[in-house]
């Protein structure tokens, strides 16, 4: 099977500082992959580059072999923090925005997700808790029939119940061919559903491994991840 996402020799600098260096990454169709790394390791930057909104990088980023920003955005569903909307915006309005502007937005799928997450569309953004907002973001992100879903820290600062809901919805609603990249700085909560892990360390991809392979070596994913970051401290 050909690669869904290909990144070659990607380097990104900002303010004279190297943020990402010599990134090479290939992801196949139909996988759930974690993007792990400390806070500030460059996970969000990498996702934003893939999604086509971070500029001025060197190297190649392609989805299904296509590099153009507009074409990439068409098949990528990025978990937008909804920062572009005013806090007084009603959820129903954001749904309309998605429905009108994304061709692949599936209203029925959203209705199902909305029911599953118990989202009230009459609420305003400012009236939502962190967990509820994150659920809304996930529901919107998944309602697009994309090929690659980029979930940027969907579990940060939310309670266990919301987390469970989000994890179940990922498993339930992921299309077979679609690939999901989830960034997080903890892994044990999501380890059981992962196909692969990608660890960002020292501004580059430190390793990219299949989770079952790690377990075959009698290591838990968490141990594996902690060992990588432990090395530097010694």
């Amino acid at each position: 099977m050909s690669n869904l996402l290909e990144i070659e020799n990607l380097t990104y600098r900002k303010n004279l500082k190297v943020i990402l260096k010599d990134i090479n990454l290939n992801l196949k169709h139909g996988k759930i992959v974690a993007l792990l790394g400390e806070n500030g390791a460059g996970k969000t930057t990498l996702m934003r580059i893939i999604a086509g909104i971070n500029k001025n990088f060197r190297g190649m980023v392609a989805i299904d072999g296509v590099q153009s920003v507009a074409d990439r955005k068409r098949v990528i569903s990025f978990s937008d923090s909804l920062s572009g909307f005013k806090e007084s915006t009603k959820v129903a309005k954001i749904i309309n925005f998605y429905e009108y502007l994304y061709d692949d937005f599936d209203k029925n799928k959203f209705k199902q997700l909305q029911k599953f997450m118990r989202l009230n569309e009459n609420l305003r953004l400012s009236e939502m808790s962190k967990g509820m907002r994150e659920k809304l973001i996930i529901a919107l992100t998944f309602s697009r029939q994309a090929e690659l879903y980029l979930l940027d820290e969907p579990f940060s600062g939310i309670d266990a119940m919301a987390r469970k809901k989000i994890i179940s919805s990922i498993i339930l609603w992921k299309a077979d061919e679609a690939t999901i990249l989830i960034s997080d700085h903890f892994v044990n909560e999501i380890a059981s559903m992962l196909d692969e892990v990608v660890v960002v360390k020292d501004k580059t991809i430190y390793c990219h491994k299949s989770t079952e392979e790690i377990r075959e070596n009698n290591q838990s994913i968490e141990e594996f991840y902690e060992n990588i970051y432990g090395e530097g401290d010694e």
């Binding site: 999604a51 909104i53 153009s68 920003v69 507009a70 074409d71 955005k73 068409r74 990025f78 937008d80 923090s81 909804l82 920062s83 572009g84 909307f85 925005f97 502007l101 994304y102 061709d103």
Partner: peptide, 14 residues
């Protein structure tokens, strides 16, 4: 510089 809008599938020039 609005992220929610910039994510839309359209080229930057357009």
């Amino acid at each position: 510089v609005n992220q929610s809008l910039r994510l839309l599938p359209i080229s930057d020039s357009k």
